[in-house]
Amino acid sequence: MSDKNEVSSLYPPPPPFIQFFTEENSKLFRECGKDEEKLAKCTTKQREQLKYFVKPELPRDGSYRAFGNVWKIKDELPELSQMGIEQLYRKRESVTELENGTTTEVEPSPQDSQSGTNYENKIQESKKLMKSLLLNFLELIGILGVDSSRYEKKLDEIRVIAINIHHLLNEYRPHQSRESLIMLFEEQLEHKRKEMEHINKVCDEVESKLAQL
Protein backbone atom coordinates (compact mmCIF):
# COMPACT_ATOMS: atom_id res chain seq x y z
CA MET A 1 0.00 0.00 0.00
CA SER A 2 2.76 2.42 0.92
CA ASP A 3 4.46 1.65 -2.40
CA LYS A 4 1.40 2.72 -4.26
CA ASN A 5 1.31 5.97 -2.36
CA GLU A 6 4.87 6.72 -3.36
CA VAL A 7 4.11 6.14 -6.99
CA SER A 8 1.02 8.27 -6.91
CA SER A 9 3.04 11.08 -5.44
CA LEU A 10 5.38 10.93 -8.44
CA TYR A 11 2.59 11.50 -10.90
CA PRO A 12 -0.14 13.78 -9.68
CA PRO A 13 -3.61 12.28 -10.10
CA PRO A 14 -5.57 13.53 -13.10
CA PRO A 15 -7.72 16.60 -12.47
CA PRO A 16 -11.20 15.70 -11.18
CA PHE A 17 -13.01 17.14 -14.18
CA ILE A 18 -11.84 14.34 -16.48
CA GLN A 19 -14.83 12.33 -15.31
CA PHE A 20 -17.08 14.83 -17.07
CA PHE A 21 -15.62 13.79 -20.40
CA THR A 22 -18.08 10.98 -20.99
CA GLU A 23 -19.39 9.80 -24.34
CA GLU A 24 -22.72 11.26 -23.39
CA ASN A 25 -21.34 14.67 -22.56
CA SER A 26 -19.16 14.89 -25.63
CA LYS A 27 -22.15 14.04 -27.79
CA LEU A 28 -24.16 16.68 -26.00
CA PHE A 29 -21.37 19.20 -26.51
CA ARG A 30 -21.20 18.47 -30.23
CA GLU A 31 -24.93 19.06 -30.48
CA CYS A 32 -25.10 22.20 -28.39
CA GLY A 33 -21.68 23.75 -28.78
CA LYS A 34 -21.80 27.31 -27.65
CA ASP A 35 -25.42 27.68 -28.64
CA GLU A 36 -27.00 29.44 -25.68
CA GLU A 37 -30.51 28.37 -26.56
CA LYS A 38 -29.72 24.71 -26.68
CA LEU A 39 -27.59 24.97 -23.60
CA ALA A 40 -30.48 26.48 -21.71
CA LYS A 41 -32.39 23.27 -22.25
CA CYS A 42 -29.73 21.26 -20.46
CA THR A 43 -29.75 20.75 -16.75
CA THR A 44 -27.58 22.89 -14.53
CA LYS A 45 -25.36 19.93 -13.85
CA GLN A 46 -24.86 19.28 -17.53
CA ARG A 47 -24.14 22.95 -18.21
CA GLU A 48 -21.61 22.95 -15.43
CA GLN A 49 -19.91 19.92 -16.92
CA LEU A 50 -20.03 21.14 -20.50
CA LYS A 51 -18.08 24.23 -19.52
CA TYR A 52 -14.98 22.05 -19.40
CA PHE A 53 -15.42 21.12 -23.05
CA VAL A 54 -14.79 24.67 -24.20
CA LYS A 55 -11.11 25.11 -24.97
CA PRO A 56 -9.47 27.61 -22.64
CA GLU A 57 -7.97 30.74 -24.15
CA LEU A 58 -4.25 30.95 -24.75
CA PRO A 59 -2.34 32.84 -22.08
CA ARG A 60 -2.21 36.50 -23.04
CA ASP A 61 1.48 37.18 -22.50
CA GLY A 62 2.49 34.41 -24.92
CA SER A 63 4.22 32.20 -22.40
CA TYR A 64 3.29 29.64 -19.78
CA ARG A 65 4.90 27.75 -16.96
CA ALA A 66 5.42 24.01 -16.84
CA PHE A 67 7.90 21.82 -15.03
CA GLY A 68 9.43 24.86 -13.40
CA ASN A 69 10.30 26.53 -16.68
CA VAL A 70 8.77 29.32 -18.67
CA TRP A 71 7.75 28.22 -22.15
CA LYS A 72 6.68 30.21 -25.12
CA ILE A 73 3.42 29.22 -26.78
CA LYS A 74 4.98 29.68 -30.19
CA ASP A 75 7.81 27.21 -30.30
CA GLU A 76 10.70 29.33 -31.44
CA LEU A 77 14.30 29.88 -30.59
CA PRO A 78 14.70 33.18 -28.77
CA GLU A 79 17.37 35.47 -30.16
CA LEU A 80 20.52 35.69 -28.11
CA SER A 81 19.94 39.37 -27.51
CA GLN A 82 16.60 38.51 -25.93
CA MET A 83 18.42 36.36 -23.43
CA GLY A 84 20.84 39.15 -22.66
CA ILE A 85 23.78 37.43 -24.31
CA GLU A 86 26.01 39.15 -26.80
CA GLN A 87 25.87 37.55 -30.23
CA LEU A 88 29.41 36.84 -31.29
CA TYR A 89 28.86 35.38 -34.73
CA ARG A 90 27.96 37.37 -37.78
CA LYS A 91 24.37 38.31 -38.20
CA ARG A 92 22.62 36.56 -41.05
CA GLU A 93 21.29 39.71 -42.69
CA SER A 94 24.75 40.99 -43.52
CA VAL A 95 25.73 37.59 -44.85
CA THR A 96 22.76 37.20 -47.13
CA GLU A 97 23.40 40.66 -48.51
CA LEU A 98 26.90 39.63 -49.40
CA GLU A 99 25.71 36.39 -50.90
CA ASN A 100 22.96 37.93 -52.94
CA GLY A 101 25.38 39.66 -55.24
CA THR A 102 27.28 36.56 -56.21
CA THR A 103 25.26 33.39 -55.79
CA THR A 104 21.65 32.34 -55.57
CA GLU A 105 19.03 34.79 -54.49
CA VAL A 106 17.84 34.20 -51.01
CA GLU A 107 14.21 35.08 -50.56
CA PRO A 108 13.74 36.61 -47.16
CA SER A 109 10.75 35.11 -45.42
CA PRO A 110 9.65 35.15 -41.80
CA GLN A 111 10.79 31.59 -41.40
CA ASP A 112 14.21 32.34 -42.78
CA SER A 113 14.83 35.19 -40.44
CA GLN A 114 14.19 32.78 -37.65
CA SER A 115 16.24 29.84 -38.82
CA GLY A 116 18.79 31.50 -41.05
CA THR A 117 19.46 30.47 -44.59
CA ASN A 118 23.17 30.39 -45.03
CA TYR A 119 24.40 27.21 -43.45
CA GLU A 120 27.83 27.30 -45.00
CA ASN A 121 28.34 30.44 -42.99
CA LYS A 122 27.11 28.77 -39.84
CA ILE A 123 29.73 26.08 -40.22
CA GLN A 124 32.46 28.65 -40.61
CA GLU A 125 31.20 30.65 -37.68
CA SER A 126 30.94 27.68 -35.38
CA LYS A 127 34.50 26.69 -36.22
CA LYS A 128 35.65 30.21 -35.46
CA LEU A 129 33.80 30.14 -32.17
CA MET A 130 35.35 26.82 -31.29
CA LYS A 131 38.81 28.22 -31.88
CA SER A 132 38.14 31.30 -29.82
CA LEU A 133 36.80 29.07 -27.10
CA LEU A 134 40.10 27.24 -26.98
CA LEU A 135 42.06 30.46 -27.10
CA ASN A 136 40.01 31.92 -24.28
CA PHE A 137 40.59 28.86 -22.19
CA LEU A 138 44.31 29.26 -22.78
CA GLU A 139 44.03 32.89 -21.74
CA LEU A 140 42.12 31.86 -18.65
CA ILE A 141 44.89 29.46 -17.72
CA GLY A 142 47.40 32.25 -18.28
CA ILE A 143 45.46 34.66 -16.12
CA LEU A 144 45.07 32.09 -13.38
CA GLY A 145 48.81 31.57 -13.43
CA VAL A 146 49.58 35.25 -12.99
CA ASP A 147 46.71 36.79 -11.07
CA SER A 148 43.93 34.41 -10.24
CA SER A 149 41.65 37.16 -8.91
CA ARG A 150 41.05 38.37 -12.46
CA TYR A 151 39.42 35.13 -13.53
CA GLU A 152 35.86 36.39 -13.53
CA LYS A 153 35.90 38.41 -16.74
CA LYS A 154 37.55 35.67 -18.74
CA LEU A 155 35.23 33.03 -17.31
CA ASP A 156 32.28 35.12 -18.36
CA GLU A 157 33.69 35.45 -21.86
CA ILE A 158 34.06 31.70 -22.08
CA ARG A 159 30.50 31.33 -20.89
CA VAL A 160 29.24 33.71 -23.58
CA ILE A 161 31.18 31.87 -26.28
CA ALA A 162 29.82 28.52 -25.13
CA ILE A 163 26.26 29.82 -25.12
CA ASN A 164 26.84 31.26 -28.57
CA ILE A 165 28.00 27.93 -29.93
CA HIS A 166 25.02 26.16 -28.45
CA HIS A 167 22.71 28.74 -29.88
CA LEU A 168 24.31 28.56 -33.29
CA LEU A 169 23.90 24.79 -33.26
CA ASN A 170 20.29 25.07 -32.22
CA GLU A 171 19.65 27.42 -35.11
CA TYR A 172 20.89 24.67 -37.35
CA ARG A 173 18.30 22.24 -36.04
CA PRO A 174 15.45 22.98 -38.48
CA HIS A 175 17.90 22.43 -41.30
CA GLN A 176 18.98 19.12 -39.88
CA SER A 177 15.40 17.98 -39.35
CA ARG A 178 14.59 18.71 -42.99
CA GLU A 179 17.69 16.85 -44.03
CA SER A 180 16.73 13.88 -41.84
CA LEU A 181 13.26 13.90 -43.33
CA ILE A 182 14.75 13.77 -46.82
CA MET A 183 16.91 10.83 -45.84
CA LEU A 184 13.95 9.06 -44.29
CA PHE A 185 11.91 9.55 -47.45
CA GLU A 186 14.71 8.26 -49.60
CA GLU A 187 15.03 5.17 -47.47
CA GLN A 188 11.31 4.52 -47.62
CA LEU A 189 11.26 5.00 -51.33
CA GLU A 190 14.08 2.54 -51.78
CA HIS A 191 12.36 0.05 -49.48
CA LYS A 192 9.08 0.29 -51.37
CA ARG A 193 10.83 -0.03 -54.68
CA LYS A 194 12.57 -3.21 -53.59
CA GLU A 195 9.35 -4.63 -52.21
CA MET A 196 7.57 -3.95 -55.46
CA GLU A 197 10.35 -5.39 -57.54
CA HIS A 198 10.26 -8.54 -55.48
CA ILE A 199 6.52 -8.96 -55.86
CA ASN A 200 6.72 -8.41 -59.58
CA LYS A 201 9.59 -10.83 -59.92
CA VAL A 202 7.71 -13.60 -58.16
CA CYS A 203 4.62 -12.87 -60.23
CA ASP A 204 6.65 -13.07 -63.43
CA GLU A 205 8.10 -16.38 -62.38
CA VAL A 206 4.74 -17.85 -61.51
CA GLU A 207 3.25 -16.64 -64.77
CA SER A 208 6.02 -18.14 -66.83
CA LYS A 209 5.65 -21.43 -64.96
CA LEU A 210 1.92 -21.39 -65.60
CA ALA A 211 2.50 -20.69 -69.27
CA GLN A 212 4.65 -23.80 -69.49
CA LEU A 213 1.85 -26.05 -68.25
Binding site: D112, Q176, R178
Partner: peptide, 29 residues
Protein backbone atom coordinates in the same frame (compact mmCIF):
# COMPACT_ATOMS: atom_id res chain seq x y z
CA UNK B 1 30.91 20.22 -37.69
CA UNK B 2 32.25 19.19 -41.08
CA UNK B 3 29.92 16.23 -41.23
CA UNK B 4 26.76 18.19 -40.53
CA UNK B 5 24.26 17.12 -43.15
CA UNK B 6 23.20 19.25 -46.07
CA UNK B 7 25.59 22.12 -45.68
CA UNK B 8 25.42 23.28 -49.25
CA UNK B 9 21.65 23.21 -49.74
CA UNK B 10 19.31 26.02 -48.86
CA UNK B 11 16.04 25.58 -47.01
CA UNK B 12 14.14 26.17 -50.26
CA UNK B 13 16.01 23.41 -52.03
CA UNK B 14 15.35 21.08 -49.14
CA UNK B 15 11.65 21.83 -49.19
CA UNK B 16 11.54 21.24 -52.95
CA UNK B 17 13.29 17.93 -52.48
CA UNK B 18 10.89 16.93 -49.71
CA UNK B 19 7.99 17.84 -51.93
CA UNK B 20 9.19 15.81 -54.89
CA UNK B 21 10.09 12.87 -52.68
CA UNK B 22 6.64 12.95 -51.19
CA UNK B 23 5.09 12.82 -54.65
CA UNK B 24 7.37 9.98 -55.65
CA UNK B 25 6.43 8.15 -52.52
CA UNK B 26 2.73 8.47 -53.23
CA UNK B 27 3.26 7.31 -56.82
CA UNK B 28 5.35 4.40 -55.63
CA UNK B 29 2.67 3.44 -53.14
Amino acid sequence: IDSLPGVDVSAQEQLHRIDSLQKQLIKME
